[in-house]
């Protein structure tokens, strides 16, 4: 198993440890996952798929709970889906 996986967050490549979740990739890229209904930046809160703060567009699927998805090489992640 390689040590790192490279994914794309908003068009920029991010290298994350193998086994990392998509939520972690966004945190490592320094990007908030989403913008709230009143315009606040938001990042992951609960880390276990309950709060839905980490939702983002993963490989074209909107509102994906990114803390429950493992990064795969070449994955395309867009914040503010």
């Amino acid at each position: 198993m390689p040590d790192e996986v490279v994914v794309t967050v908003n068009g920029s490549q991010v290298a994350v440890p193998a086994g990392a979740t998509v939520a972690v990739a966004m945190m490592m890229a320094g990007k908030p996952c989403r913008t709230s209904v009143t315009g606040e930046p938001r990042g992951p809160l609960c880390g276990m798929g309950i709060c839905f703060e980490c939702r983002a567009m993963v490989n074209g699927v909107p509102h994906s709970r990114s803390c429950q998805i493992l990064c795969e090489s070449g994955m395309d992640v867009k914040t503010n889906d």
Binding site: V16, P17, G19, A20, T21, A23, V24, M27, P44, L45, C46, G47, M48, C67, C71
Partner: peptide
């Protein structure tokens, strides 16, 4: 939550 994120890489 943070512990889970650290365990998630």
């Amino acid at each position: 939550g943070l512990q889970a994120m650290v365990k998630s890489g």
